[in-house]
């Protein structure tokens, strides 16, 4: 078996008193099509949301390509906190000593004669602050502490965000389609390609040749991708005007544009007719075989799941009840119990 691309270890998700996912562990190997199934409310989508960092796991951990998904600590971060702290400290100090008075003493009072010198203003400012030294010090220190603590906590909370997960190589689609409805089909794909269009702010607002070239390349790539998923002549339609099946297709195409190593598909066949489902099955397999993308999917349609999955995990009430190949799952007593009752 290939090495695991995604490891979920003892994942528990709690929302208040509700335990949506309870101590679930499984591994997805590279190049696999892995399905998560279970009755409604079993916690499938919650697991997807935990993987893509919409939620943070209450307990347990999720490893992607053998690493945690938390962004590492960098020294630059530390300097940034100090800078923020210094800024808030100075801000607090200015407010603490009354910046209005300070200005009056240093700038206005020194500007009465025509011989204003910045040295004299600086001197008066220093005298003014020294007269209120304890206030200034308290404000400075507390501002500094608050600034550092706040920026640290913001960083700590945003170490694992949906966008960092997306850049790591996990792309996903949504149960209820979430396209950029008012943008064209082509633009939807271009958003997926955005992370590698590394044109700077300045080159894009002054439209330098470099950004034009990158843009042109991205367009060509997007058109190719649209061909690949079978939306070739629809690039200028608004996404919301596409028929339902095409919207699903476009959402997958958009996710593929991110060049993921792992693709999460949340009920890709919902609302499709049998022919479309067969198409989709072929398409998913094709994506795995040709683009070498591992696929993790949630699906209710048993024919589709049994047809394409290499392995399946079954959840019920947030607990894992079975894991194995489609053949094993089909005859698993627990699974039959969960779906059909006693």
């Amino acid at each position: 078996m290939n090495p695991a691309i995604l490891q979920i270890k003892q994942l528990t998700m709690r929302f208040g008193g509700l335990v949506a996912v309870n101590d679930v562990s499984f591994q997805v190997a590279e190049g696999e099509i892995y399905a998560v199934i279970g009755p409604n409310g079993a916690g499938k989508t919650t697991i997807f949301n935990a993987i893509s960092a919409v939620y943070q796991p209450s307990q347990g951990e999720i490893l992607f390509q053998g690493k945690t998904q938390y962004s590492p600590f960098r020294f630059r971060q530390f300097l940034f906190w100090l800078l923020i702290g210094l800024f808030t400290g100075l801000f607090a100090m200015l407010i603490g000593v009354n910046v209005n008075q300070l200005w009056q003493k240093s700038i206005r009072d020194n500007n009465i004669t025509d011989t204003f010198s910045y040295a004299a203003a600086w001197q008066s400012a220093k005298e003014y602050i020294e007269a209120r030294l304890s206030t200034a010090q308290i404000a400075l220190v507390s501002g500094f502490v608050i600034g550092v603590a706040a920026s640290f906590s913001v960083w700590n909370r945003s170490r694992r965000t949906t966008d960092s997960i997306g850049r790591m190589g996990i792309a996903r689609t949504f149960q209820n389609i979430r396209l950029f409805q008012n943008m064209t089909v082509l633009e939807n794909i271009l958003i997926g390609l955005n992370h590698e269009c590394k044109c700077s702010f300045w080159s894009s607002i002054f439209r330098l040749p470099s950004s034009n070239r990158l843009e042109e390349e991205a367009h060509q790539r997007a058109l190719k991708l649209l061909h690949y998923v079978g939306l070739a002549d629809k690039e200028n339609l608004l996404a919301r005007n596409l028929p339902y099946g095409d919207q699903r297709r476009l959402e997958i195409a958009r996710a593929l544009a991110c060049k993921p190593a792992l693709l999460l598909l949340d009920e890709p066949a919902a609302g499709m007719n049998p022919t479309e489902k067969n198409e989709l099955m072929r398409f998913i397999r094709q994506v795995r075989d040709e683009l070498k993308i591992t696929i993790l999917l949630i699906e209710h349609d048993m024919k589709l799941v049994m047809g394409i999955s290499d392995r399946i995990v079954v959840l019920d009430y947030g607990k894992k009840i079975a894991e194995g190949t489609p053949k094993e799952i089909r005859v698993h007593p627990e699974v039959i119990k969960a779906y059909l009752g006693e």
Partner: peptide
């Protein structure tokens, strides 16, 4: 614009 249309979807695309 993508951010305006759907913030969650946009952030899942790595923005």
């Amino acid at each position: 614009v993508a951010l305006r249309e759907d913030e969650l979807a946009a952030s899942c695309m790595g923005l």
